[in-house]
Design a protein around this nucleic acid. Structure first.
Lengths: 145, 145
DNA sequence: TATTGTTATACTCTATAACTATA
DNA sequence: TATAGTTATAGAGTATAACAATA
C-alpha cells in the first residue's frame, strides 16, 4: 500500500494538483523577492497588498491569517515608514481603519507590478484558451459569497 | 489614465489573474491553518514539505527563499522535536544532508493531507475538463528544465 | 457580556557579518 | 580563493494572556 498522500498520488487530479503546487511555490518566491527588493518584510508586504481598500485592524488580521495583536506592531512599523495611517471609524469608536498613504499606494503598485509578472505569461494562451481556463478555474474555485 | 496596475486591470488576463491570486491566498491560509494545527511555525512546516527527499542545508535555504544562516536554527528546532536529523554527505565533507525521521515523515503526511484538501474540489470537473485544465496550465507554466 | 485594539511576554524568523572547516 | 555551514546580533514576526475602552 502506497505511503503517498492524496495530494501526491498520481492520476489526473494528482497531476493537476502538482502543477498548482508549483504555481503556488513560484508565486510565493516571487512575492518574497518583491518584498525584499522594496525592503519590506513578507508580512508587511502582505498587509500592503490587502489594503486596496481601508480595513479595520481586526479585518486585516483575518486577511493575513495572524492574531489580532500582531497587527498593532505591524501597522506601527508601516506607519513609522509613512506607508499607512490609522483613522477612527465613524460607526464604532472601538474600531480603527488602516488606510494607505500616497507613498503606501505607490509602494503597493510596485509590489503588484513585481508579483503580477506571470500575467504576461498568460499571453502564451490564445484568447479562446484564456476563456476556457477562466471557466475551468471558476468551477474549481467558485466565489464564496 | 487608470492608476490600476497590469495585475489588477480588467480584461481577460486580468480576470484569470484575479482568480489565480484568490487561489494563492486560499492556499496560503490553508497552509497557515495546517501548520498551526500541528503546532509548527510556517517556516518549519515549509521545510518539512520541501523534505520529500534529503536536502543539503544550502539547498533547503534556496527552496525556502531565505538566508543560509536561518536554516541552522530552523533545523536545530526541528531536530529537537525529533522530526529531522542531520547526516554528513559522503561526497563533500562540508555538506550536511537534512533527513526526515519517521515522526517527521508522519507529520509531513498530515500536513499534505490538510494542505491538499482542494484536490477533492477538482472532482467538480469531469475527466475531460481536468485534462483540459492540465494542458492549459502546462502551457502557462511549463517546467523549467 | 462580548468585541476591538493594545500591551507584555516569550519564542521564532530573518538578514547581515564574521568565523571555521573543507574544497 | 570559493563554498557549506555555524555563530552572534539586531530587528521583526507570532501566539498567548491580560487589559482598557466601547458596544
Amino acid at each position: 500500500m502506497s505511503m503517498e498522500s492524496t495530494a501526491t498520488r498520481g492520476g489526473l487530479r494528482g497531476e493537476v494538483w502538482a502543477i498548482l503546487r508549483r504555481l503556488f511555490r513560484e508565486h510565493r518566491l516571487r512575492f518574497l523577492s518583491a518584498a525584499a527588493e522594496l525592503d519590506l518584510h513578507p508580512a508587511q508586504a502582505g498587509a500592503l497588498l490587502q489594503l486596496a481598500e481601508p480595513l479595520s485592524m481586526n479585518h486585516l488580521a483575518g486577511e493575513l491569517g495572524c492574531d489580532n495583536s500582531n497587527v498593532t506592531g505591524l501597522v506601527d512599523r508601516l506607519a513609522a515608514r509613512g506607508l499607512v495611517s490609522r483613522r477612527e471609524s465613524p460607526d464604532d469608536r472601538r474600531v480603527r481603519q488602516v488606510v494607505l498613504t500616497d507613498a503606501g499606494r505607490r509602494t503597493r503598485e510596485q509590489l503588484l507590478q513585481r508579483v503580477g509578472a506571470p500575467v504576461g505569461e498568460l499571453g502564451r494562451l490564445t484568447e479562446d484558451e484564456q476563456r476556457q481556463l477562466l471557466e475551468l478555474l471558476r468551477k474549481v474555485a467558485p466565489e464564496e459569497r
